[in-house]
């Protein structure tokens, strides 16, 4: 399982019944301790968090092939972080008929990010660069499948690649910054 979140319906998680069975075996003191962890400081989420989640619905990519994150140098271990703190981050997404490689590096403005991308197989495409709370940016990939976009902000990022005659491909969300 990759580090970018579970795949829906993979069936590799214990079901709620089994989790409930394990909880049922706890004695009262243990059950209360478990409840203490779930209730925590008992604070509700701030309302804007739910509002943001509702607004995210606009980012639903309808009828698009999912390009899964298969490699991400940003998910480094402590050791590799020591080696590569200064190197640009390289991520690869794979859909059945398309691979999207993107490099993320500091942009031309302080605090912004530049993204340099490569589509394989190389072909022209329109790329929609999406971040929550921001208007999407469109860029073109050239005949060699190369594209770049600058002045992206910290936060989640996903691309939709539109190619003539082919199904759209949407990358999984990653967080930049």
């Amino acid at each position: 399982m990759s580090a970018n979140g579970p795949t829906a319906g993979d069936g590799d998680q214990p079901g709620p019944g089994r989790a409930a069975d394990r909880l049922g075996e706890l004695d009262d003191e243990q059950l209360l301790a478990a409840l203490g962890e779930v209730l925590g400081t008992s604070q509700s989420p701030p309302p804007w968090s739910a509002e943001l989640a509702k607004a995210s619905y606009d980012l639903l990519a309808v009828d698009a092939e999912l390009a899964r994150l298969t490699s991400d140098s940003g998910l480094a271990t402590a050791q590799s972080a020591l080696r590569s703190a200064a190197a640009p981050r390289l991520t690869v997404f794979e859909a059945p008929d398309l691979s999207v490689e993107i490099q993320i590096e500091p942009g031309d403005r302080a605090g912004s990010w530049r993204l340099i991308g490569q589509l394989t197989p190389a072909a022209p495409a329109r790329i929609q660069v999406r971040q929550p709370r921001t208007q999407p940016v469109w860029v073109d990939a050239d005949d060699l499948g190369r594209f770049s976009v600058d002045r992206l902000r910290d936060g989640p990022l996903s691309l939709i690649c539109t190619r003539p005659g082919l199904r759209h491909a949407v990358t999984q969300w990653i967080t930049i910054g």
């Binding site: 979140g5 795949t7 829906a8 319906g9 989420p45 968090s49 943001l52 989640a53 995210s56 619905y57 980012l59 639903l60 990519a61 999912l66 929550p132 989640p156 996903s158 949407v170 999984q172 969300w173 967080t175």
Partner: peptide, 16 residues
């Protein structure tokens, strides 16, 4: 939380 909802969104038509 935001990223979790975005993951849900990217999988919403694939949740079996």
């Amino acid at each position: 939380v935001q990223l979790t909802w975005l993951r849900m969104l990217e999988h919403v038509d694939r949740i079996r």
